[in-house]
Computed example of a mutant assay.
Amino acid sequence: MKDFLHLHSNKDESPGFLRGALMWRGSVTPRIFFSLLLMTCYCALIVALDQYWQPLPHLAVTPFEYTGVVLGLVLVFRTNAGHERWWEARKLWGAIVNQSRNIAIGALSYGDILNVSSQQPLWTKDMVKWTIAFSFATKESLRNGKNFDELSDLLNEQELDALKSAGHMPLFVAGKIAELLQQARLSHYIDGFVFMGLEGQRVLLIDHIGACERILKTPMPLVYAIKARRFILIFLLLLPFSLIENLGFSAVFIFFLVAYPLLSLDRIGIELQNPFVTKNLSHLPLDSICDTIKLHCSALLEQSQRSGNHNFP
């Protein structure tokens, strides 16, 4: 039971509370460290000037209590908006996994060889390999890359070169699947109902890549990001003037406790905006998802070979 829970939990998250709270890897702390240090030094400078040079203007704490609540709501909204994009992308990739399995199962259940010659590729085998290739092509397209080492055992050099040189790699693969379906239909290898079912799954794959591209190419509105950060900056610049009267140098520590979560939430909202890029924290594990599709579809193909339902070369 413990192994099952560990398998379906965040593998990078420590089960221990203290160790998890103090983790550096995967945290936004390194990415806000300079800004946090700069703002804390600013607060320390204000306190030092007030204590050793001349008294500075003191502000009441009450206005900051109200504005702090409003600022917290603004940051929560931005974080939730980023998480919504992240979660939608994960649901889309879950659908890509499902559609890939459906196409593989449909091809292996209703297909047979189109050409009895051992020199010709099998229709079912081609359907499975191009279905697997779709997920890898989608991953590389979203990451603006062309690394297909994982497909070297499925596609030959000519096919890999054609895939890499395609203007839109996922559509190229989807076109290959469409050609195979059309070939099977015209050869009366599959009936119209099977064709419509598999074609529907292929269309859904294109819908999913389109939705992923919408997330990728539509960032959070710049005007909102600017205003949110401007509010944070004004709040933190004025906050020390409300703390120095009663707290003295303790105001630096209190300021740190306020600035740390504000800057962290702002950064988390940025990190979640693009769930596909590996440089962002908590990006989607697309490599693992694609490997899962390849593993499952390949296992279905091997099972079909062992069952003797198809005459593979």
Rank of each mutant, 00 (worst) to 15 (best):
G106K: 03
G106N: 10
L108E: 02
L108A: 00
S109D: 10
S109H: 10
Y110Q: 14
Y110A: 15
Y110G: 10
Y110I: 12
G111W: 00
G111A: 05
I113D: 09
L114Y: 05
N115F: 11
N115M: 11
N115V: 13
N115L: 12
V116E: 15
V116N: 13
S117K: 07
S117C: 08
S118E: 09
S118Y: 10
S118M: 11
S118A: 12
Q119D: 11
Q119A: 15
Q120D: 12
Q120V: 14
Q120N: 12
P121N: 11
W123S: 02
W123L: 13
T124V: 12
T124I: 07
T124A: 09
T124C: 08
T124H: 00
T124R: 02
M127F: 01
K129F: 01
W130Q: 10
W130I: 13
T131I: 02
T131G: 04
I132R: 01
I132A: 01
A133R: 00
A133M: 02
A133C: 09
F134A: 03
F134I: 04
S135A: 15
F136D: 05
F136E: 06
A137Y: 02
A137D: 08
A137M: 07
A137I: 05
T138Q: 03
T138K: 00
T138W: 02
K139V: 04
K139L: 08
K139I: 05
E140Q: 15
E140S: 08
S141Y: 03
S141I: 03
S141H: 09
L142V: 01
L142K: 00
R143Q: 11
R143G: 01
N144C: 11
N144Q: 14
G145F: 03
G145S: 13
G145L: 12
K146M: 11
F148T: 05
F148D: 03
F148Y: 13
F148H: 04
D149R: 11
D149L: 14
E150M: 14
L151A: 06
L151V: 08
L151G: 03
S152T: 14
S152R: 15
S152P: 07
D153H: 12
D153Q: 13
L155M: 10
L155V: 07
N156P: 09
E157A: 15
E157W: 08
E157F: 09
Q158L: 14
Q158A: 15
L160R: 06
D161G: 10
D161F: 09
D161T: 15
D161P: 06
A162V: 03
A162H: 05
L163P: 00
K164W: 05
A166D: 08
A166R: 01
A166I: 04
A166W: 00
G167E: 15
G167H: 06
G167A: 10
H168V: 07
H168P: 05
H168A: 07
H168K: 06
M169G: 01
M169I: 12
P170C: 05
P170D: 09
P170T: 04
P170M: 03
L171D: 13
F172N: 04
V173F: 00
V173H: 02
A174N: 07
A174H: 00
A174D: 11
G175R: 11
G175S: 14
G175F: 04
G175W: 05
G175C: 07
K176Y: 00
K176C: 03
I177H: 01
A178D: 09
L180A: 08
L181M: 06
L181S: 04
Q183F: 04
Q183A: 15
Q183E: 07
Q183T: 15
A184N: 07
